[in-house]
Simulated assay, not measured.
Amino acid sequence: MVGIGPGAPEDLSGRALEALRQAEVIVGYRPYIRLLEGVLSPEQEVIGSGMRQELERARLAVDLACSGRRVAVVSSGDAGVYGMAGPVLELLGKSGGRDRVEFQVVPGITAASAAAALLGAPLMHDFAVISLSDLLTPWEVILQRIEAAAKGDFVIVFYNPRSKKRVNQIGEAREVILKYRRPDTPVGIVTSVGRPGQMLVISDLNGFLSQEINMHSLVVVGNSRSYVRDGFLITPRGYRL
């Protein structure tokens, strides 16, 4: 399982690069494989597939690995954070392949880490990462998690905040957070982090919904002590400066 980082070639770790070069077969979501142009060798077998085919990719990777092939399954960011490490490891266990296959996760820079670096220092204190996609998790459960994070004064990073078919969830999340935080709480939005077309906006809880937010965006909501200075979003850790 290889995490390839947010997208820019310079964010691909040396360990990930070595794992990719040693693999006989590369399996992944087509847009992620395109991010590896210039990294992979023509001699390697590359198998790409589309959105919502995670289980098909996992089964194929397990079958190939059990047949003796050296397989790298790629995920953007970190393979163990909303990535392919979970389904592949679960399928290996259910198939009995864990006894025959050496399994390894090669970590990568997460989208949350990359976005935070661009925004400044928003994650300097406790934070929660929540996906607003309800494809695999009931929306009622997601709302409970948002409520808990907001009540606990966590900085909150939202993955998958909005898509063409899923447009209202980020607004509902905002209403929950407003029960516990001021309307002027800073909010950072980073879209296509580390990729062409990257955009960065710093707004606040009152007005951030007027900004462009899509499935390639991450939304970072500060806690009660977060503030903006010199164009950077900062969450103080509590040092006496």
Score class of each variant (00 low, 15 high):
residue 40 L to Q: 09
residue 210 S to F: 03
residue 90 E to I: 01
residue 209 L to F: 10
residue 169 Q to S: 09
residue 154 F to P: 13
residue 133 S to H: 07
residue 173 A to K: 03
residue 165 K to A: 08
residue 204 D to M: 05
residue 13 S to G: 06
residue 70 R to S: 13
residue 155 V to K: 02
residue 112 A to S: 11
residue 14 G to A: 11
residue 120 G to D: 02
residue 164 K to T: 11
residue 169 Q to Y: 13
residue 232 F to D: 05
residue 5 G to Q: 15
residue 158 F to Y: 07
residue 42 P to G: 09
residue 199 M to V: 08
residue 4 I to N: 01
residue 73 V to G: 14
residue 172 E to L: 12
residue 19 A to R: 02
residue 6 P to N: 15
residue 190 V to E: 01
residue 183 P to F: 00
residue 17 L to P: 00
residue 172 E to G: 04
residue 186 P to D: 03
residue 237 R to L: 10
residue 216 H to L: 15
residue 58 A to R: 08
residue 239 Y to A: 03
residue 155 V to F: 04
residue 129 V to K: 03
residue 222 G to Y: 01
residue 189 I to A: 06
residue 163 S to Y: 09
residue 53 Q to L: 14
residue 192 S to N: 13
residue 38 G to I: 01
residue 61 A to N: 06
residue 194 G to Y: 01
residue 10 E to H: 14
residue 78 D to S: 06
residue 56 E to N: 12
residue 11 D to A: 11
residue 27 V to R: 03
residue 98 R to D: 12
residue 88 V to Y: 13
residue 103 F to V: 15
residue 86 G to I: 06
residue 241 L to V: 14
residue 36 L to W: 08
residue 125 H to D: 14
residue 233 L to T: 02
residue 202 I to S: 04
residue 181 R to T: 10
residue 191 T to L: 05
residue 125 H to M: 02
residue 88 V to Q: 10
residue 227 Y to C: 05
residue 179 K to W: 06
residue 216 H to V: 15
residue 125 H to Y: 11
residue 192 S to R: 14
residue 203 S to G: 07
residue 231 G to W: 02
residue 155 V to C: 10
residue 155 V to I: 07
residue 77 G to R: 02
residue 4 I to L: 12
residue 3 G to E: 12
residue 101 V to Q: 07
residue 188 G to D: 04
residue 139 W to L: 12
residue 17 L to D: 00
residue 84 M to A: 07
residue 4 I to C: 08
residue 200 L to M: 15
residue 153 D to Q: 06
residue 163 S to E: 04
residue 150 A to R: 04
residue 86 G to H: 10
residue 104 Q to S: 11
residue 80 G to S: 13
residue 173 A to L: 09
residue 142 I to L: 06
residue 23 A to D: 01
residue 61 A to E: 05
residue 175 E to P: 09
residue 219 V to N: 03
residue 82 Y to T: 10
residue 207 G to Q: 15
residue 203 S to E: 09
residue 141 V to Y: 10
residue 19 A to W: 01
residue 96 G to C: 06
residue 126 D to L: 11
residue 117 A to K: 05
residue 89 L to Q: 15
residue 61 A to H: 05
residue 132 L to C: 06
residue 122 P to Y: 07
residue 69 R to V: 08
residue 132 L to D: 11
residue 238 G to N: 12
residue 166 R to D: 09
residue 79 A to L: 02
residue 26 I to E: 00
residue 136 L to T: 13
residue 51 M to E: 14
residue 224 S to V: 13
residue 83 G to P: 14
residue 68 G to V: 05
residue 33 I to A: 04
residue 117 A to N: 08
residue 98 R to P: 00
residue 18 E to T: 01
residue 224 S to G: 01
residue 237 R to F: 12
residue 177 I to F: 07
residue 190 V to C: 05
